[in-house]
Design a protein around this nucleic acid. Structure first.
Length: 582
RNA sequence: CGGGGCGUAGCGCAGUUUGGUAGCGCGCACGGUUCGGGACCGUGAGGUCGGAGGUUCGAAUCCUCUCGCCCCGACCA
């Protein structure tokens, strides 16, 4: 491509609505542009990057035995109504009506449609297993789109669905997909981890997220410093931490006046003079949750947080919601900040770490009062279940080493769905015994457009993007300098040579000053740059520079094309076969 | 949905407190000088001041309503 003909509207200044690096650089580099909140258009460079990601995804999915299909984005409401998700999806579902008043929704995901596609024709175990995938726009009315292209209301996603005869075979399909994902993420040049994850309300069992490790990521992860354990904090486990407080005599419980101090930190500060040795770890934090109509008290140590997903599981409900201030007053008779398990009339769930505190301070269920010297089992009862949020430094559940905290962007998610959809939708087959059984499904997503942003979050510097070769919009940029004819001519013939070798080159033939060309080249993040100046040309040399290197390398003119092609493949890029034949 | 902020030229902003006929930088067009890390001089084009209503002789500025965007939180198959 000739730069002079290309539509690459770069921006010198940072658009004010952009905050994260990927958002800023995608906008500045002329890759994408915002059309509305969480809605973006792809300019030529952005489209090229997406195509590169798609290409890798397609190849690995095809190699893994999946077949590509394309499902509609506009869905008659009856599909989601059939599984109840038309309602349960809630506000995230884009709904609309046609001219006749019939209801539709835009596809936020396609389990229903694919299940319908398969149930029409798959009737026998002989037709299984089957794995179908598509790369398509998904629509979700996110409560809060953010970080540019990382969380959008319209986004490009690859979703694959497997259909098997039973759970064991479904697990095999799952394993195959998981391996394919490893190959995909490696080829895309991303630093990622597979973490244990919550399967959400999809009714899944086995599941794993492919998390791209990035500081600005939305998800919190813990990764073992020693073994390969890694998990989303939503589901992270830990062994019981040894408790700091001794298990000696616990004095009798005493009510203390704590006017206006409700938070853990405030109470600790307030009580320190009268109760030396008080610390957040010796406080018990009591939070009230609404779970299926009932109000439940969750108790964790003062320095811990409640993991709401674990709490919901412990209670056997699908979700818990923090109780309103009014509910708290009703249930405890006190203002928020003074709830505690002693005297609480209702279900209490206690984290093991909290249960182990031998001499605790808790809220007294009376405004402006706390109880000191309280002990589980003596002063109050409560069911013990692991409901705390795992923290950095906690011991790894599988090897005991310290867990480290990371933040990540969920780039992919694989999980076994079981018969959740097939049973509801009557997607069945006949097994060899002639018995009718529901298909056992798995589903596997990759956020294609999100990965474009994730790659930038991971690969950029102050000057711009550093695309991994495998997804760079162009593999090399040719930068002739000066207004003499020589450099441009040399660049033109190098350009032809490179194209003949199948290298994707961008020829900066603009009549711009060197500084402008260098700045744009760095901003766009093209992995290789060949600088062609009159001085070098006189010596028969060109400069070859990697975007991620400080120094350029001088290369004889005649060898440059071959060297570039070698670099491209060496860095994980592919030469275009169509061009290579030319 | 709760809290905060912002809508003025393609982009970034000033002007709003104290009403008086819209300005700066970048970008863009033209001319000239420059040419290895976002050059310089000159000339010029470009604006429903987010929208509607109101107050006023007069509204970007004051009042009411409304739409949109960003950030924090809630939420996130």
């Amino acid at each position: 491509m000739r730069y002079s003909k290309a539509f690459i509207p770069t921006l010198k200044e940072v658009p004010k609505d952009a905050t994260t690096p990927s958002h800023v650089l995608l906008l500045r580099g002329g890759f994408v542009r915002m059309v509305g909140a969480g809605i973006y258009e792809m300019l030529p460079l952005g489209r090229r990057v997406l195509s590169k990601i798609e290409r890798t995804v397609r190849r690995e999915m095809d190699d893994a035995g999946a077949q590509e299909v394309l499902m509609p984005a506009l869905l008659p409401a009856e599909y989601f109504q059939e599984t109840g998700r038309y309602d349960s999806f809630g506000g995230a579902l884009f709904r609309l009506k046609d001219r006749k008043g019939a209801e539709y929704n835009l596809g936020p995901t396609h389990e229903e449609i694919i299940t319908d596609m398969v149930r029409r024709d798959v009737k026998s175990y002989r037709q299984l297993p089957l794995n179908l995938y598509q790369i398509q726009m998904k629509f979700r009315d996110e409560p809060r789109p953010r970080a540019g292209i990382l969380r959008c209301r319209e986004f490009l996603m690859k979703d694959a669905y497997s259909f098997d005869v039973d759970e064991a075979h479904a697990l095999e399909s799952y394993a195959v997909m998981r391996e394919a994902y490893h190959r995909i993420f490696k080829q895309l040049g991303l630093d990622y981890r597979v973490v244990a994850a919550d399967s959400g309300a999809m009714g899944g069992s086995t599941s794993a997220e492919f998390q791209v490790l990035v500081q600005t990521g939305e998800d919190s992860l813990v990764v073992c410093s020693s073994c390969d354990y890694a998990a989303n904090v939503e589901v992270a486990e830990t062994t019981l931490p040894t408790d700091a407080s001794s298990a000696d005599e616990t004095p009798d419980a005493t009510k203390v006046h704590t006017p206006g101090v409700g938070s853990i930190a405030d109470v600790v500060a307030f009580l320190t003079p009268t109760l030396p040795g008080i610390s957040p770890a010796r406080m018990l934090k009591s939070l009230l949750y609404t779970a299926d109509e009932r109000v439940v008290m969750a108790v964790v140590r003062g320095d811990d947080d409640v993991n709401e997903i674990r709490l919901a599981r412990a209670l056997g409900v699908s979700e818990v919601v923090l109780a309103s201030a009014e509910d708290v007053r009703k249930a405890t008779g006190a203002q928020v900040g003074f709830a505690g398990p002693v005297g609480f009339e209702g279900e209490i769930v206690l984290d093991p770490a909290a249960a182990a505190v031998a001499d605790a301070v808790i809220g007294a269920n009376e405004t402006d009062h706390h109880l000191a010297h309280v002990r589980h089992g003596r002063d109050f009862e409560g069911r013990v279940a692991s409901i705390r949020m795992v923290k950095e430094g906690d011991p790894c559940p599988s090897c005991g080493a310290e867990l480290r905290s990371f933040r990540g962007i969920e780039g992919g998610h694989v999980f076994v769905l079981g018969t959740h959809y097939s049973a509801k939708m009557g997607a069945t087959f006949l097994d060899p015994e002639g018995e009718e059984k529901p298909l056992v499904m798995g589903c596997y997503g990759i956020g294609v457009s999100r990965l474009m942003a994730a790659a930038i979050e991971q690969h950029h510097d102050d000057d711009g993007i550093l695309w991994p070769m495998s997804i760079a919009p162009y593999q090399v940029i040719l930068t002739p300098l000066g207004k003499e004819a020589g450099p441009l001519q040399a660049a033109e013939s190098l350009y032809d040579e490179l194209r003949a070798l199948g290298v994707e080159a961008l020829l900066d033939d603009r009549a711009e000053r060197p500084g402008v060309k260098f700045k744009d080249a760095d901003l766009l993040g093209i992995p290789l740059r060949v600088t062609i100046g009159q001085r070098g040309l006189d010596a028969g040399m060109l400069e070859l520079k990697r975007r991620d290197a400080k120094e350029a390398e001088k290369v004889p003119l005649a060898e440059t094309a071959a060297r570039v092609a070698t670099w491209v493949t060496g860095l994980g890029g592919e030469l275009s076969p169509r061009r290579a034949r030319a």
